[in-house]
Design a binder for these strands. Sequence first.
DNA 1: TTATCGTGGATAATTTTTATCCGCATTAGG
DNA 2: CCTAATGCGGATAAAAATTATCCACGATAA
Lengths: 172, 172
Amino acid sequence: MKLGEGVEAAIHCAAMLAGVEGAATMPGAAMAEAFGLSPSYLLKHLNALTASGILESVPGPSGGFRLARPAERITLLDIVLAVEGREPAFRCGEIRQRGPARLDASAYVKPCGISVAMLKAERAYRAALAESRLSDIVADYMSDADPRSVAANCAFVERHQRPQKSSSTKQA
Amino acid sequence: MKLGEGVEAAIHCAAMLAGVEGAATMPGAAMAEAFGLSPSYLLKHLNALTASGILESVPGPSGGFRLARPAERITLLDIVLAVEGREPAFRCGEIRQRGPARLDASAYVKPCGISVAMLKAERAYRAALAESRLSDIVADYMSDADPRSVAANCAFVERHQRPQKSSSTKQA
DNA sequence: TTATCGTGGATAATTTTTATCCGCATTAGG
DNA sequence: CCTAATGCGGATAAAAATTATCCACGATAA
């Protein structure tokens, strides 16, 4: 059982985007630089977040990414599912009916008890992730982390965020 | 996030072994046949269960595998960890300190909040798995599943289990 | 003594993950 | 209008993990 590295990157990016002001955006290349990641591959994950409605993207110069909704309404589960896909980690292959002494299909209408138990545990996992809001992550970071780190991150965001032309959306 | 197919196989095998009487064993080849799996590869997973102390193995003709302790004291977590390894699914790569503006190491003594949140969810997952006992799985199967399936499985176990020479261990 | 079985290592096939690249559409700024 | 910066999507490749097979070996029941 393993989570791809993209999950870590995606969450860090989302947390960083939570720091950009108003409708401003931050280019994917800047975030790749901030975390020492390959820009082209990070874009793949950011695209996944965009496709899931977690991020918004703006093309063109001074384009980039921003959160599609307030950090209060983005959970770690949202991000994990966007990057890793919505399928459960445990996939029942119905090997119970793959043996040589196969019965009629009507003998297997009830779901496999093993699958039920595994999926139940996975619901607990997702429930816990759903309780972690991005805003909590950011708030804890701001209050708990080393002040130097916080300052450095804020400076980075300040330096790389791109204000947007006044569209109808809110402006900081 | 994906679990290997070996987990499903391992749990089904363990559940089947819960049905063998006393100190009797069941050969890996029989279980591979029962579930339509490649015998050589299934053996790998059964070995992992043996190495973790979940199964016992007996070499020689009329050898095979049996549970190393009562099914009441084997949980799904035991099996999942044995097959998938004990490492958490989320591994913090500390990408927060991999950017170009690295700070002193002392700025990163506190664990990354993202990692903390992810690991907390994983503890919930494992706790849920730890509450599923193999004996529960088997009991539910016996009472809920289609009687034809139960009968077929019992017959299979009956046919393939190998009684052991009277060692000091209990005998059915 | 022989045949059956688990053990462990080596190896290969397959799939997934990670990563790179290029052409395209969009758009801010001159 | 032109240019350059940026995201988007697809194709492709490199790397790693998973899945699968095989063989030589030790153990042991018959």
